[in-house]
Design a protein around this nucleic acid. Sequence first.
DNA 1: TTAATGCGCAACCGACGGGTTGCATTGTCC
DNA 2: GGACAATGCAACCCGTCGGTTGCGCATTAA
Lengths: 118, 118
Amino acid sequence: MTRSSAAAAQKLAGAAPLFAALGEPARLRIVAKLCEAGGPLPIVRLTRGANISRQAITKHLHALSDAGLVRNERNGRESLWRLEPLRLEEAQRYLGLISARWDEALGRLRALTEREEG
Amino acid sequence: MTRSSAAAAQKLAGAAPLFAALGEPARLRIVAKLCEAGGPLPIVRLTRGANISRQAITKHLHALSDAGLVRNERNGRESLWRLEPLRLEEAQRYLGLISARWDEALGRLRALTEREEG
DNA sequence: TTAATGCGCAACCGACGGGTTGCATTGTCC
DNA sequence: GGACAATGCAACCCGTCGGTTGCGCATTAA
């Protein structure tokens, strides 16, 4: 690997916790709920409908929070959780980077082989 | 949740294995290596430089394969592994969907509150 | 044919993670 | 003040997962 690709690999490795946080159905459902609500939700609301305990939801929320995907704010006796779209877009850009580079490299390879064959 | 959002949540939950596959530094490094190579690589090449055993790499490759992110092809005594960019783009679209919906909902909310305040 | 290379399969181990239960704490409403 | 509601904290259980080691098999090279 070149030095630049090593740097890219470093950045990608740093993105792993982000994907790991999203790589759980329960957490993805939480994200979807927050997305659908269009605003912050308390834990009770997030627990409603999910067939797991409130503590499980809390743990997942903390996992999402550690990944920077979510943020909480205490309001009286309830804690409201909101999405952090910037972080989501960051993850999105990572994937775009990879697929774009692969397509590009593949294109170069194809052009090269075609030139050799032609 | 509305019925449409439930369907969206279903699709998102289906995307969880995809993110889970990417949520491991070692696997992300493999993806980066394949991306940098610009073409399929045998396992030995993927193992070189990584400080884990060949079997570990193989396991990760199968995990990526189960997620549809990678594909292998036997060539003589070596098996070549290539990236599957379509799947990556799919994951990318998922994230875009979420962040876009959240931003939109947030925009509506802000407009509403401003109207009420003004 | 013999040696070396690349790989697959299977067993094993330690650690992390998801989920639960129980209890304490804080805030709200009557 | 007292009942109820929303959370937080801690301990525990068990399954899964990442990683290793050992062996066997096919393919290539000498």
